[in-house]
Structures are given as C-alpha cells and as structure tokens.
C-alpha cells in the first residue's frame, strides 16, 4: 500500500528511532521507563508494551524523537535500570514495523459505501457498524494509518485510538534474551512487588 496514492504527505519522521527493550515483567517497570524519559528530557513518540516469548519478560517498543537526545544516551540510560535486560536500537536494521488503529467515523446511508471503498483500498476491516457510525480497524506502518485517517477526516472522525509501533528485525536475527533464571530465584522474582491475592487481615495500628 502506497499512501502517497491518496495524495497524503506523511509526517516528517527523519529522526525517529525505534528502540526495543526487553524488561522484567514486574510492577513499576513501565513507570521507571516513562519516568526516565521524562527526567532526561527524551521525547517519546510512542511506547507499547506486552508479553514477550519468554515468561516473565515483557517487550517494550519505544519510538524516540532523536532530536531530543542522542539515541545512544537513551539506550545507556535505559540499561541503567535494573529491570531492563536488553536494549536494541532498530534504526539501522531492516525491520517490519506495524501499528494498529481503530477509527470511529461518522457516516450515513448515503456515504457509507464510499467509506467502505476507502477502507477496502487500505485493507482496513470494519469491526463495528451502526446507523451513523462505523469503526475501521487498520494495521500497517504509520504512513498507511495516517493516510487512512486523512481520508476519513472529511466524514468526521468521532474517535481515534492508535497502539503505537511494534517492530521486529527481518530474517533470523533477534533482539530478545534467552537467559532463564535459577528456579529458586525465578520463583521470588515472579511475585516480587506484586499484590497478595485474597483477604488480608485489616490492620491500621
């Protein structure tokens, strides 16, 4: 899909870097990372986080505005966090980068077909439909999503939600970590800092 077909000019992203961080799946990790970026003045364009292929490890994809800081400093500062295990700058790599968006667009019986045609060109899915509204779900790189948004604007966008970028290096190379922990330590690490489930006795003394 080439969004320029739609006359859409992609936003300038010359200096955006995609950084992948493999982190311990523990309470507070997201805050530590976000707090680090705020404190050091690094601008985050997007940040996504979810489970990785290793139990106990999460994968964060962070798009950093390279004008706000040298990406090398971002990497090094991230490494200083104890819960961050591996950091990779994918800027120089051949990667697949994707984002998902849901766009709730105003429509009516007259223009719905037009809108569905547009969705079709962008290979967007219709995931909800109502009398005066439609939700389109689209997956692709930012340019493609920007293109669809631009095309939907004249109809009226009621609501927009984007996931931010996730990325992976093409081919056999990986950016992940396969280092299991000793079982005794892993057991404690899995619960460290997590709330205890079930009723605890009330105590305010």
């Amino acid at each position: 899909m080439n969004p320029s077909l739609n006359g859409h000019q992609p936003r300038k992203r010359a200096n955006h870097h995609t950084v992948v961080a493999i982190v311990e799946d523990k309470p507070g990790v997201l805050m530590r990372v976000a707090s680090l970026f705020r404190r050091r003045g690094f601008n985050i364009e997007s940040l996504t986080v979810g489970h990785s292929e290793m139990p106990g490890l999460s994968r964060m994809t962070i798009v950093v505005d390279g004008d706000s800081a040298p990406v090398e400093q971002v990497e090094k500062q991230l490494y200083k966090l104890i819960d961050v295990i591996k950091v990779s700058d994918l800027s120089q790599e051949d990667i697949v980068a994707r984002e998902l968006a849901m766009i709730k667009v105003r429509c009516n019986n007259v223009n719905r077909h037009e809108l569905l045609d547009i969705a079709n060109v962008f290979r967007a899915d219709v995931v909800d439909i109502a009398t005066n509204s439609i939700i389109l779900q689209v997956v692709g790189d930012e340019d493609k999503i920007d293109g669809l948004i631009k095309m939907c604007e004249p109809y009226g966008i009621r609501e927009l939600s984007r996931t931010g970028r996730i990325a992976m290096v093409r081919g056999t190379k990986t950016t992940t970590v396969h280092e299991p922990e000793p079982e005794r330590i892993a057991r404690i690490h899995q619960t460290q800092g997590r709330r205890v489930e079930g009723d605890l006795p009330f105590s305010s003394d």
Binding site: P27, G28, M31, R32, S35, L36, R39, K80, L81, I82, D83, I185, I188, H189, T191, Q192, G193, R194, R195, V196
Partner: peptide, 24 residues
C-alpha cells in the same frame, strides 16, 4: 516512597511477602 524515589535510587523494592525479604 518507592514511586517518590524511583529517580534518585539505583533501584528500589516494595516487598509484599515475607518470603521475598532475604532475596530482596
């Protein structure tokens, strides 16, 4: 206090179970 001291400690811990204490 763990939230407050995130940016001024190398690391911090909130311990939720006694069995976590030795390792922590």
């Amino acid at each position: 206090i763990t939230g407050i001291t995130h940016s001024i400690t190398k690391h911090n811990y909130l311990v939720m179970r006694p069995e976590e204490i030795p390792l922590t």
